[in-house]
Structure formats: C-alpha cells, structure tokens
Design a protein around this nucleic acid. Structure first.
Lengths: 249, 249
DNA sequence: CGGGTGCTTGATGAATCTCAACAATCGTGG
DNA sequence: CCACGATTGTTGAGATTCATCAAGCACCCG
C-alpha cells in the first residue's frame, strides 16, 4: 500500500473534478470546509492493490481520477469482479471496519480519503452527506442488479456487447457528445482477463467474442484496446437490451 | 392489483413483527407516530404481481409477512430474479417514481405502505429513517454482489447448495436454533422455476441438481419442498463458500 | 536480442440447455 | 369420494455453448 508521488493537487474542493457528482455533491460551503479538514489524497499505480478483502480500513474514499475494481475470489481461485469504480464513486462502508472485496487500481488512481471516524460523525451531524450517499448506493444497487441479469442470462456475445455499450455510453456522456450520431471512439480500460472477470467468462472466450463482433462489423478495432463504435444502436441490439433502456453511468 | 381481505391488524407499530428490523428500526416514539399517520396496509395473494416494471409507484413499502421477488425480463422472455424480499425488506426508491423490476408475491404477502411524498419529506426532516435505509441498502448491495459471484462463477451444484444454505441459515436464525448442531428443516418458498430464475439456470437443471444433492446425502427431502439438512457444514462445502464466511440474512 | 505480458486461435471435452415424455400432486366439480 | 385436468416436478437423449488445454503471435522494455 505504498504511496508514490501525489500528483499536483488543486487548490481546494471548489476546483475538484468530481465536486458535483461525489458524496460531497450536496454539501454547502460550510460542510465542504468540514470535509476538507478530514480529507487527504492517496494515489496508487496501475495494478496496485488498494485494499485486500478482510483488511481493516481506517478511511472511506472517493475516486477522483482513474479506475478501480472490486473483486471477490473463491478459495480455488475463481474470481468475479463485482464493481467497477469510476471517478466520483465511493469506496468503503460507514459503520463497518473491514472491507468485503479486493479493491485494485487498474489505471493510475487518485483517491480523496476521509478518516473514518470523523466522517461517520459528520454523517450523523449533517444530513447532506448521508442523503447523497444513499442516492449513490441506490444507483449502485440498480447497476448491480442490471449486472445480475447479464451474468445469469446473457450469452457470451451479449455480455461483451453490453460491456462495450456501457463504456461507450459513459465515454460519450463524459465528452458531452451526442451518442446517437457519429462514431464513438474509446480505449478499453480493462485487459481481456479483467473483462473476463467482470463478465463471468474466460479470457479466451472474451477474445473470441471481441473478434467475432469485429468480424461482423459491429465494432472496429485499432490495436487491441482502441474501439470504434459506428452504430451504437446496432451494438445495443447485440447487447440484448431494450433499444434505449438502461442507465447512464 | 386488487386487494382482498386485509388480515387482522395489530394495534400499532409497537407490536409490529418487523419493528426492529425494518426501515423504522431506529425511529423513536415521535417519529413512529408520524409514520403511523402515513402508513396503510396492503395484502396480496401468492402469485399476484405487486407492480410491473416501469409502472408508476405512488408508495414505498416494507414487507411485513410473506415473500416477494424482484425480477427483470428481457424482450425475448429470459428472466432473472434480482432480489428476494423477506419480512422487513424495503420496496421502492425514494426520489424515483417508477420501479425498474417486476415485484411479485410468491407467498401471501402483507406490506406496510407509506405514501411516497410524505415519506420523502420525512426522510429529509428526520434523519433516522434515512440512516436506517442507507444501512439496509448497503446490506442489499453486499447481498447483490455475493449473488454476482454465484451467477458468474459457481457451478449448477454450487448454486443450488448456496441457495439452500441461505434459506437454511435464515430459517435457523428466525427460529433461534443453533445452526451448528442438529438437523435444520424447512420448506422451500420457491418453485423449481423460481429457483432457476434466481440462480440463472433452467428448471430442469435445478431439478437434476437437487436430486443429485439428495442422492449424495447432502440433503434429504420429504415431498418436493420439505428439506432436511443434517450437516450444514457439508452443505456449505458444496456451496463453495468459505467454511463459515458469508452473511446472515 | 531475449523475455515477459497480453492477446489470438485451434482442438477437444464437459457442463448446461433444449426438447420431449412422463410422473406426482392438488384442487375442483361431478 | 373419485375422476379429471392443470400445475409442478422428474428424467432422458441430443445439441450447444463455453471452458480447458495448448500453441503461437505481437508488442514492449530492458
């Protein structure tokens, strides 16, 4: 859990890129000042483990930049990713010391951490943090249930298409592009193995199905990771989702 | 959504069987009185649909007695159960009008409903309801993630064993029996098809694996639904869980 | 250049689904 | 009370999907 250099930090919460989406989204200036008192930054390199399942966690945190994953592992080594943490997502559970999953940085990662005790006290004293956290947790629960449908019922091809569609949409929304027109272009933030862990497949099956989608013209690839989606509607069809249903991340 | 006779209702929240586990668990007498003003009961017969996915929901509710399920359905009819609602569990989402899943009563069901608007106002005014709801939602999220591991990585046999183990433990905890000694006996609250929908299997595979577990002496059956677990440790082994890990429902 | 990591592709086999027939159970009406 | 149909569950045979095992390619970095 060694730190390396903390990247250039901005002035304060006012400039924070996740200010309006994270657990602090609803806080007023007063509350923000309180949070600022108990916060500190940590950064992790791509591939580093943030916490091991079962470890004690003396802080809770928001992802500021980068991507982290939550994974569960069975005794014999089978692994299932149970969450993908994007900027503004929250890690840790107020009221519980230990964490139930391995948290790993898949890209370089910057986290905004709050010391557990003061954070919990603040949750009781000021309602805005708790309210926002409830909202975020309900969203995560919805996403987890969406994923249960994928894991339980979708074919390998549909699983791949679903994952690509989710990433494509998130990327489109971040770049404020209209997802309905023009190609969407993005880099996969996950290796084939990580995709397999997320989708409940083997890495070979992931590789085959990505190739198949490319062969069938659903997506185009440049190199291994750079994906071009010319027709999002087509991709969504392949994903087996209701045409425009689902959720934006 | 027709009602039939509402069962005999107790005096007030004081006698309520879910008083100390439901969303009202932390409320003091004052707050309880407020809730009492906006609450009403509804009951549903086994098999009845409580709400259809996409429908508008003008209330939120707690399950008082009985069991309900949350299921998602794909266009072509594939179904995945994404939640099993037991007494004290909460239905509905503050801040959102529509519901994302079909909610169905699998047994006769009694729900304690709160009108949405006043409930939301109360969530803002008094913190105890929101705090408890956050806690419950975090628990549900943990359970959903546990289920993702099951759906993504466990074999059919492990899935069945896991489901039986969860029901066995819950039953043991309700009856305050020591789960570690003596046989655990319970009735399955789900049909084979519902089990299949929960586990991401077909009903035929469920049937075969239940038979296999019986043949191998892991469980005993009387009729189709009545299950006897003589050795919970053995069942947990078959479930692929860490010996004593996991969560009590 | 060599070695490592990440990825692709092929051959084979196992787990699970699909289709199909049939058995057991339950409620209902004659 | 019994016969009937409807529902629920069991079992078998064959098809399909995906995992496993194995080989080799592409790229990056020292």
């Amino acid at each position: 859990m060694a730190l390396h250099d903390v990247p250039t930090l901005h002035g304060g919460c006012g400039d924070c890129p996740i200010r309006h989406r994270a657990v602090c989204a609803r806080c007023d200036t007063d509350e923000l000042a309180q949070l600022e008192n108990i916060k500190y930054y940590r950064s992790y390199q791509a591939g580093q483990t943030v916490i091991w399942s079962g470890d004690k966690m003396d802080f809770v945190a928001s992802v500021v930049t980068g991507i982290a994953t939550l994974t569960q592992t069975m005794e014999d080594g089978r692994r299932q990713m149970v969450g993908l943490l994007l900027p503004s997502d929250f890690v840790g559970r107020p009221g519980r010391q230990t964490v139930a999953y391995d948290v790993t940085a898949t890209t370089d990662l910057l986290m905004c951490c709050f010391r557990r005790k003061p954070f919990e006290e603040m949750m009781i004293a000021t309602p805005h943090v708790g309210q926002r956290l409830l909202e975020m947790t309900l969203d995560e629960l919805d996403a987890a249930r969406e994923w249960m449908l994928l894991l339980g019922r979708k074919t390998a091809r549909e699983k791949i298409a679903s994952l690509l569609a989710i990433i494509a949409r998130r990327d489109a929304s971040l770049k404020l592009r209209d997802a309905s027109k023009g190609p969407i272009v993005f880099d996969l933030p996950l290796t084939r193995e990580e995709m397999a862990d997320y989708l409940g497949l083997t890495l070979e099956t992931v590789s085959r199905q990505v190739s198949a989608l490319r062969r069938d013209g659903v997506i185009a690839l440049e190199g291994k990771r750079h994906v071009i989606v010319n027709d999002l509607g087509r991709l969504l069809e392949e994903a087996g989702d209701d045409s425009d249903g689902g959720f934006l991340v």
